[in-house]
Computed example of a mutant assay.
Amino acid sequence: MSDLNELLPLMMKGTLVTIQIAVISILLAIVMAGVATALRAAPYRAVRWAGNVYVEVFRGTSLLVQLFWLFFVLPLPPFNVQLTPFTVAIVGLGLHYGAYGSEILRGALRSVPGGQYEAALALNMPAAARLRRIVLPQAMINALPPATNLMIELLKGTSLVSLITLSDLTFRARQLDEATFKTAEVFGLTLLIYFVLAQVIVAVMRVFERRVSSHVAIRRTVPRAAS
């Protein structure tokens, strides 16, 4: 077990766990960002208050403490809710970064020029169609760059789940370090893996951003061509 080459499969297994947690947490964060933004824009004060409480609590407290709370406190009375470490990691990361995502989405929606809303209203466009065809495509262009940064932050935040007994990349790196005493090599490789995963997120989001931008450009040119 002292040979680093023999222990590398353990690190690859940890990388797979990290990828699974990151992907599912990103999806949950996207859902929570949308839900929280809708709640905060609701016409009812109580609903807006609930959305604001969610955002401020999860944005204003430590992610590590939130994970510990879900892992150690929820199983105790009066909650008596037992979650697996994997579930705790996904819920904790998704809720935490979903709160930040709500702020990004809210800012992106506000960045859409007011004239766009007025033009849609002048055309008697229904609210759902107005949101789907005019507001969201333009807001997405402004939201995607900061959303990419937030996804990378979430990926790096997955390193904290090793503290709730999950065998992720960071957990496996510590095991390798203790078994081989090759600290520089082990953690150097760990940094490289996190960097590669972050670049994959950047590449995927750039492709998505180009497609959204071209879609919006087509929508803008079609009316001019028709006129």
Rank of each mutant, 00 (worst) to 15 (best):
F86T: 13
G14E: 13
E178K: 12
A119V: 11
V65I: 15
I201S: 00
D177G: 04
I104Y: 07
L176I: 08
Q138T: 05
A120N: 09
P146W: 04
N142P: 00
I134F: 06
L83P: 05
A226Y: 12
V17K: 02
L176K: 05
L166C: 08
W49K: 04
G114S: 05
S213T: 15
G107D: 04
P145H: 08
F195L: 15
A226D: 06
A139W: 03
F68L: 14
V200K: 01
I26M: 15
I152Q: 06
P9H: 03
L121R: 10
E118R: 10
Y100E: 08
A108R: 08
L28K: 12
P223S: 02
A129F: 00
E6V: 01
V204Y: 01
V47I: 15
F181Q: 10
E185W: 08
R106E: 11
V65E: 00
V186C: 09
R110D: 14
L131M: 15
M11E: 01
L10G: 12
V135R: 01
L121I: 08
A198C: 12
D168Q: 09
G14S: 10
L39E: 04
N149K: 00
V65H: 00
I134N: 06
F171I: 04
L131C: 04
Y117F: 14
L166T: 14
F86K: 10
A173M: 06
P9D: 12
P43A: 13
L121V: 09
K182G: 02
R224Y: 10
R130M: 14
M32A: 04
I193M: 10
T61V: 03
T148A: 08
S25R: 09
S111T: 06
R40W: 03
A46W: 11
A203S: 10
T165Y: 07
P146Q: 02
E56D: 13
L123S: 08
P146A: 02
I104R: 07
V35S: 03
F79Y: 15
